[in-house]
Amino acid sequence: MSDVSDLVLDARGLVKHFPITQGIVFRSKVGEVRAVDGVDLQLRRGETLGVVGESGCGKSTLAKLLVGLEKPTAGEIMVRGEDMTRLSGHALRRARRNIQMVMQDPYTSLNPRMTVGDIIGEPFAIHPDAVPRSGRERAVQELLDLVGLNPDHINRYPHQFSGGQRQRIGIARALALRPEIIVCDEPVSALDVSIQAQVINLLERLQRELGLSYVFIAHDLSVVRHISDRVAVMYLGKIVETGYHMAIYEQPTHPYTQALLSAVPVPDPRLRGHRDHIVLEGDVPSPANPPSGCRFRTRCWKAQPYCADHEPLLQIRQRAPHPSACHYAEVRDLLHRH
Protein backbone atom coordinates (compact mmCIF):
# COMPACT_ATOMS: atom_id res chain seq x y z
CA MET A 1 0.00 0.00 0.00
CA SER A 2 2.65 2.49 0.97
CA ASP A 3 4.79 1.49 -1.97
CA VAL A 4 6.81 4.49 -3.12
CA SER A 5 5.87 3.89 -6.74
CA ASP A 6 2.25 4.47 -5.76
CA LEU A 7 3.02 8.00 -4.67
CA VAL A 8 1.52 10.45 -7.18
CA LEU A 9 2.06 13.61 -5.16
CA ASP A 10 4.66 14.29 -2.53
CA ALA A 11 4.79 17.76 -1.04
CA ARG A 12 7.42 18.57 1.57
CA GLY A 13 7.91 21.56 3.78
CA LEU A 14 5.42 23.75 1.92
CA VAL A 15 5.48 27.34 3.15
CA LYS A 16 3.58 30.31 1.81
CA HIS A 17 3.97 33.70 3.42
CA PHE A 18 2.10 36.69 2.02
CA PRO A 19 3.85 39.98 2.69
CA ILE A 20 1.80 42.75 4.28
CA THR A 21 2.84 45.97 2.59
CA GLN A 22 2.28 49.66 3.07
CA GLY A 23 2.59 52.49 0.61
CA ILE A 24 1.42 52.79 -2.94
CA VAL A 25 4.36 53.45 -5.23
CA PHE A 26 7.09 52.68 -2.74
CA ARG A 27 5.99 49.61 -0.87
CA SER A 28 7.57 48.54 2.33
CA LYS A 29 6.97 45.22 3.99
CA VAL A 30 5.52 45.59 7.48
CA GLY A 31 4.82 41.94 8.21
CA GLU A 32 3.65 38.70 6.70
CA VAL A 33 0.67 36.43 6.81
CA ARG A 34 1.82 32.87 7.35
CA ALA A 35 -0.96 31.21 5.41
CA VAL A 36 0.79 27.87 5.03
CA ASP A 37 3.67 27.26 7.36
CA GLY A 38 5.41 23.94 6.83
CA VAL A 39 3.04 21.32 5.43
CA ASP A 40 4.00 17.84 4.24
CA LEU A 41 1.53 15.69 2.40
CA GLN A 42 1.62 12.52 0.36
CA LEU A 43 -1.03 11.25 -2.00
CA ARG A 44 -1.19 7.76 -3.42
CA ARG A 45 -2.80 6.52 -6.60
CA GLY A 46 -6.58 6.20 -6.36
CA GLU A 47 -6.64 7.66 -2.87
CA THR A 48 -8.57 10.59 -1.42
CA LEU A 49 -6.84 12.78 1.10
CA GLY A 50 -9.25 15.02 2.98
CA VAL A 51 -7.97 18.32 4.35
CA VAL A 52 -10.22 19.94 6.95
CA GLY A 53 -9.96 23.14 8.88
CA GLU A 54 -11.79 26.34 9.64
CA SER A 55 -11.66 29.49 7.58
CA GLY A 56 -8.22 31.08 7.69
CA CYS A 57 -6.40 27.83 8.41
CA GLY A 58 -4.64 27.99 5.05
CA LYS A 59 -6.38 25.11 3.30
CA SER A 60 -7.36 27.17 0.26
CA THR A 61 -3.83 28.56 -0.05
CA LEU A 62 -2.56 24.99 0.16
CA ALA A 63 -4.84 24.07 -2.75
CA LYS A 64 -3.49 26.98 -4.80
CA LEU A 65 0.08 25.94 -4.06
CA LEU A 66 -0.59 22.37 -5.16
CA VAL A 67 -2.02 23.40 -8.53
CA GLY A 68 0.58 26.10 -9.08
CA LEU A 69 -1.67 29.13 -8.78
CA GLU A 70 0.66 30.45 -6.07
CA LYS A 71 4.38 30.01 -5.82
CA PRO A 72 5.49 28.62 -2.48
CA THR A 73 7.88 30.62 -0.32
CA ALA A 74 9.66 27.36 0.42
CA GLY A 75 9.22 23.65 -0.04
CA GLU A 76 8.84 21.25 -2.93
CA ILE A 77 5.94 19.58 -4.72
CA MET A 78 7.01 16.38 -6.44
CA VAL A 79 4.74 15.08 -9.18
CA ARG A 80 6.06 12.20 -11.32
CA GLY A 81 9.54 12.77 -9.99
CA GLU A 82 9.59 16.44 -10.97
CA ASP A 83 9.57 19.33 -8.56
CA MET A 84 6.70 21.55 -9.77
CA THR A 85 8.02 24.54 -7.86
CA ARG A 86 11.24 24.57 -9.89
CA LEU A 87 9.61 24.33 -13.29
CA SER A 88 8.70 27.25 -15.46
CA GLY A 89 7.53 28.02 -18.97
CA HIS A 90 6.81 25.05 -21.19
CA ALA A 91 7.84 22.40 -18.68
CA LEU A 92 5.52 23.87 -16.04
CA ARG A 93 2.62 23.99 -18.47
CA ARG A 94 3.12 20.34 -19.29
CA ALA A 95 3.45 19.35 -15.65
CA ARG A 96 0.28 21.23 -14.74
CA ARG A 97 -1.73 18.96 -16.98
CA ASN A 98 -1.33 16.25 -14.42
CA ILE A 99 -2.83 18.14 -11.50
CA GLN A 100 -6.10 19.97 -11.90
CA MET A 101 -8.58 21.63 -9.60
CA VAL A 102 -12.34 21.78 -9.07
CA MET A 103 -13.26 25.12 -7.56
CA GLN A 104 -15.75 26.02 -4.89
CA ASP A 105 -18.09 28.45 -6.55
CA PRO A 106 -19.75 27.11 -9.69
CA TYR A 107 -21.11 30.59 -10.40
CA THR A 108 -17.77 32.38 -10.70
CA SER A 109 -15.54 29.58 -11.95
CA LEU A 110 -17.03 29.47 -15.45
CA ASN A 111 -16.54 32.35 -17.89
CA PRO A 112 -20.08 33.66 -18.49
CA ARG A 113 -19.21 34.69 -22.04
CA MET A 114 -18.05 31.31 -23.21
CA THR A 115 -20.20 28.39 -24.29
CA VAL A 116 -19.93 25.14 -22.40
CA GLY A 117 -18.19 23.67 -25.43
CA ASP A 118 -15.56 26.43 -25.33
CA ILE A 119 -15.10 26.12 -21.57
CA ILE A 120 -14.54 22.37 -21.59
CA GLY A 121 -12.59 22.60 -24.85
CA GLU A 122 -10.27 25.31 -23.55
CA PRO A 123 -7.74 22.81 -22.15
CA PHE A 124 -7.41 21.39 -25.69
CA ALA A 125 -6.96 24.86 -27.14
CA ILE A 126 -4.17 25.56 -24.65
CA HIS A 127 -2.54 22.16 -25.15
CA PRO A 128 -3.13 21.47 -28.85
CA ASP A 129 -1.21 18.20 -28.67
CA ALA A 130 -3.71 16.67 -26.23
CA VAL A 131 -6.41 16.00 -28.81
CA PRO A 132 -6.19 16.68 -32.56
CA ARG A 133 -8.34 19.60 -33.65
CA SER A 134 -10.79 17.44 -35.54
CA GLY A 135 -11.53 15.31 -32.50
CA ARG A 136 -12.08 18.09 -30.01
CA GLU A 137 -15.81 18.48 -30.33
CA ARG A 138 -16.21 14.74 -29.92
CA ALA A 139 -13.91 14.82 -26.87
CA VAL A 140 -15.93 17.63 -25.28
CA GLN A 141 -19.14 15.72 -25.80
CA GLU A 142 -17.62 12.62 -24.27
CA LEU A 143 -16.59 14.64 -21.24
CA LEU A 144 -20.11 16.06 -20.89
CA ASP A 145 -21.48 12.56 -21.04
CA LEU A 146 -18.93 11.36 -18.51
CA VAL A 147 -20.08 13.89 -15.90
CA GLY A 148 -23.74 13.20 -16.54
CA LEU A 149 -24.67 16.17 -18.68
CA ASN A 150 -26.40 16.14 -22.03
CA PRO A 151 -23.70 16.14 -24.76
CA ASP A 152 -26.06 18.14 -26.97
CA HIS A 153 -25.71 21.16 -24.72
CA ILE A 154 -22.29 22.32 -25.89
CA ASN A 155 -23.69 25.56 -27.26
CA ARG A 156 -25.29 26.65 -24.03
CA TYR A 157 -23.90 29.26 -21.71
CA PRO A 158 -23.17 28.63 -18.02
CA HIS A 159 -26.09 30.72 -16.75
CA GLN A 160 -28.46 28.30 -18.42
CA PHE A 161 -27.43 25.61 -15.96
CA SER A 162 -28.16 25.08 -12.27
CA GLY A 163 -25.43 25.20 -9.62
CA GLY A 164 -25.00 21.44 -9.53
CA GLN A 165 -24.79 21.21 -13.31
CA ARG A 166 -22.24 24.01 -13.41
CA GLN A 167 -20.13 22.13 -10.92
CA ARG A 168 -20.27 19.15 -13.30
CA ILE A 169 -19.03 21.43 -16.09
CA GLY A 170 -16.14 22.49 -13.84
CA ILE A 171 -15.36 18.82 -13.18
CA ALA A 172 -15.44 18.03 -16.90
CA ARG A 173 -12.98 20.86 -17.56
CA ALA A 174 -10.66 19.52 -14.87
CA LEU A 175 -10.80 16.04 -16.40
CA ALA A 176 -10.14 17.15 -19.98
CA LEU A 177 -6.36 16.71 -19.87
CA ARG A 178 -6.65 13.33 -18.14
CA PRO A 179 -4.89 14.36 -14.95
CA GLU A 180 -3.96 11.85 -12.26
CA ILE A 181 -4.61 14.27 -9.43
CA ILE A 182 -7.56 16.52 -8.80
CA VAL A 183 -7.56 19.08 -6.04
CA CYS A 184 -11.15 19.75 -4.96
CA ASP A 185 -11.45 23.03 -3.07
CA GLU A 186 -14.80 22.96 -1.25
CA PRO A 187 -16.50 21.47 -4.31
CA VAL A 188 -19.92 21.03 -2.74
CA SER A 189 -20.16 23.74 -0.10
CA ALA A 190 -21.90 26.18 -2.44
CA LEU A 191 -24.52 23.63 -3.44
CA ASP A 192 -27.89 22.76 -2.01
CA VAL A 193 -28.18 19.76 0.27
CA SER A 194 -30.05 17.62 -2.23
CA ILE A 195 -27.51 18.47 -4.96
CA GLN A 196 -24.40 17.86 -2.82
CA ALA A 197 -24.97 14.13 -2.83
CA GLN A 198 -25.19 14.07 -6.64
CA VAL A 199 -21.80 15.75 -6.98
CA ILE A 200 -20.16 13.65 -4.25
CA ASN A 201 -21.39 10.47 -5.91
CA LEU A 202 -20.11 11.72 -9.26
CA LEU A 203 -16.66 12.39 -7.82
CA GLU A 204 -16.59 8.91 -6.30
CA ARG A 205 -17.67 7.27 -9.54
CA LEU A 206 -15.04 9.18 -11.56
CA GLN A 207 -12.38 8.13 -9.09
CA ARG A 208 -13.31 4.49 -9.50
CA GLU A 209 -13.55 4.65 -13.28
CA LEU A 210 -10.50 6.79 -14.00
CA GLY A 211 -8.26 5.86 -11.06
CA LEU A 212 -8.00 9.48 -9.93
CA SER A 213 -6.36 10.69 -6.74
CA TYR A 214 -8.11 13.48 -4.89
CA VAL A 215 -7.00 16.11 -2.45
CA PHE A 216 -10.39 17.02 -1.02
CA ILE A 217 -10.38 20.29 0.85
CA ALA A 218 -13.46 21.20 2.88
CA HIS A 219 -14.69 22.65 6.12
CA ASP A 220 -17.53 20.14 6.38
CA LEU A 221 -16.23 17.24 8.41
CA SER A 222 -19.14 15.00 7.50
CA VAL A 223 -18.50 15.35 3.77
CA VAL A 224 -14.77 14.80 4.27
CA ARG A 225 -15.39 11.70 6.30
CA HIS A 226 -17.67 10.32 3.65
CA ILE A 227 -15.27 10.71 0.77
CA SER A 228 -11.77 10.47 2.29
CA ASP A 229 -9.41 7.57 2.87
CA ARG A 230 -7.02 9.67 4.89
CA VAL A 231 -7.61 12.99 6.61
CA ALA A 232 -5.35 15.88 7.59
CA VAL A 233 -6.59 18.50 10.05
CA MET A 234 -5.19 22.00 9.61
CA TYR A 235 -4.97 24.85 12.09
CA LEU A 236 -3.27 28.18 11.39
CA GLY A 237 -1.17 27.01 8.47
CA LYS A 238 -0.05 23.68 9.94
CA ILE A 239 -1.32 20.13 9.91
CA VAL A 240 -2.07 19.23 13.52
CA GLU A 241 -3.19 15.65 13.03
CA THR A 242 -3.29 13.18 10.19
CA GLY A 243 -4.23 9.57 9.67
CA TYR A 244 -6.74 7.18 8.15
CA HIS A 245 -10.29 8.42 8.44
CA MET A 246 -11.15 5.86 11.10
CA ALA A 247 -8.21 7.03 13.18
CA ILE A 248 -9.12 10.70 12.92
CA TYR A 249 -12.84 10.35 13.44
CA GLU A 250 -13.01 7.49 15.93
CA GLN A 251 -9.78 8.11 17.84
CA PRO A 252 -8.87 11.78 17.57
CA THR A 253 -5.86 12.70 19.69
CA HIS A 254 -5.28 16.40 19.07
CA PRO A 255 -7.43 18.74 21.19
CA TYR A 256 -8.32 20.79 18.13
CA THR A 257 -9.55 17.77 16.19
CA GLN A 258 -11.54 16.76 19.24
CA ALA A 259 -13.09 20.21 19.54
CA LEU A 260 -13.95 20.27 15.84
CA LEU A 261 -15.57 16.85 15.97
CA SER A 262 -17.55 17.68 19.06
CA ALA A 263 -18.87 20.85 17.44
CA VAL A 264 -20.18 19.22 14.28
CA PRO A 265 -23.93 18.80 14.53
CA VAL A 266 -25.05 15.24 13.89
CA PRO A 267 -28.47 14.77 12.30
CA ASP A 268 -29.72 12.54 15.06
CA PRO A 269 -31.69 14.16 17.88
CA ARG A 270 -31.22 11.11 20.08
CA LEU A 271 -27.60 12.10 20.56
CA ARG A 272 -28.69 15.45 22.00
CA GLY A 273 -27.20 15.85 25.43
CA HIS A 274 -25.31 12.59 25.12
CA ARG A 275 -22.32 13.89 23.22
CA ASP A 276 -19.28 15.52 24.67
CA HIS A 277 -19.37 19.17 23.74
CA ILE A 278 -16.04 20.90 23.81
CA VAL A 279 -16.72 24.58 23.40
CA LEU A 280 -13.64 26.48 22.33
CA GLU A 281 -13.25 29.98 23.66
CA GLY A 282 -12.49 32.88 21.41
CA ASP A 283 -11.51 33.02 17.78
CA VAL A 284 -8.66 31.76 15.66
CA PRO A 285 -5.62 34.05 16.16
CA SER A 286 -4.41 36.05 13.20
CA PRO A 287 -2.01 34.14 10.93
CA ALA A 288 0.01 37.36 10.71
CA ASN A 289 0.95 36.93 14.34
CA PRO A 290 0.54 33.30 15.37
CA PRO A 291 1.15 32.28 19.00
CA SER A 292 4.60 30.97 19.90
CA GLY A 293 5.18 27.29 20.45
CA CYS A 294 1.96 25.39 19.84
CA ARG A 295 -0.37 27.57 17.80
CA PHE A 296 -3.49 26.11 19.34
CA ARG A 297 -2.44 26.76 22.93
CA THR A 298 -4.40 30.05 23.23
CA ARG A 299 -7.67 28.16 22.86
CA CYS A 300 -6.63 24.85 24.33
CA TRP A 301 -7.86 23.54 27.67
CA LYS A 302 -4.82 21.31 28.04
CA ALA A 303 -2.26 24.05 27.46
CA GLN A 304 0.73 24.20 29.82
CA PRO A 305 3.57 26.71 30.01
CA TYR A 306 5.64 24.14 28.13
CA CYS A 307 3.40 24.57 25.05
CA ALA A 308 4.33 28.24 24.73
CA ASP A 309 8.01 27.48 24.29
CA HIS A 310 8.08 24.19 22.44
CA GLU A 311 6.46 23.68 19.09
CA PRO A 312 4.96 20.18 18.95
CA LEU A 313 6.01 18.14 15.94
CA LEU A 314 3.55 16.14 13.86
CA GLN A 315 4.56 12.64 14.94
CA ILE A 316 3.36 9.39 16.43
CA ARG A 317 3.36 9.65 20.21
CA GLN A 318 3.01 7.39 23.19
CA ARG A 319 -0.76 7.85 23.39
CA ALA A 320 -1.32 8.81 19.80
CA PRO A 321 -1.26 5.90 17.36
CA HIS A 322 -1.13 8.26 14.36
CA PRO A 323 0.78 11.52 13.81
CA SER A 324 -0.44 14.28 16.12
CA ALA A 325 1.08 17.68 16.85
CA CYS A 326 0.28 17.89 20.54
CA HIS A 327 2.57 17.35 23.51
CA TYR A 328 -0.35 15.91 25.42
CA ALA A 329 -2.04 13.96 22.64
CA GLU A 330 -4.48 11.36 23.86
CA VAL A 331 -7.32 9.43 22.22
CA ARG A 332 -10.83 10.60 23.05
CA ASP A 333 -13.99 9.30 21.39
CA LEU A 334 -16.45 12.08 20.67
CA LEU A 335 -18.93 10.67 18.26
CA HIS A 336 -20.65 8.05 20.26
CA ARG A 337 -23.05 8.01 23.10
CA HIS A 338 -21.59 8.04 26.57
Binding site: S194, Q196, A197, Q198, I200, E204, S222, R225, L261, P267
Partner: peptide
Protein backbone atom coordinates in the same frame (compact mmCIF):
# COMPACT_ATOMS: atom_id res chain seq x y z
CA UNK B 1 -32.99 14.46 2.30
CA UNK B 2 -32.00 12.48 5.37
CA UNK B 3 -30.58 9.69 3.24
CA UNK B 4 -28.66 12.06 0.99
CA UNK B 5 -26.49 13.77 3.60
CA UNK B 6 -23.07 12.43 4.55
CA UNK B 7 -22.92 11.58 8.25
CA UNK B 8 -20.13 12.32 10.65
CA UNK B 9 -21.00 9.38 12.87
CA UNK B 10 -20.72 6.69 10.25
CA UNK B 11 -19.10 6.28 6.89
CA UNK B 12 -21.74 5.04 4.50
CA UNK B 13 -21.10 3.66 1.06
CA UNK B 14 -23.03 5.44 -1.62
CA UNK B 15 -25.22 8.43 -0.82
CA UNK B 16 -28.82 8.30 -1.87
CA UNK B 17 -29.48 10.97 -4.41
CA UNK B 18 -32.59 13.06 -4.99
CA UNK B 19 -32.64 13.22 -8.73
CA UNK B 20 -33.33 16.42 -10.62
CA UNK B 21 -33.57 19.95 -9.31
CA UNK B 22 -35.92 21.90 -7.07
Amino acid sequence: LLESIPRLDHKGRQLNVIRGLP
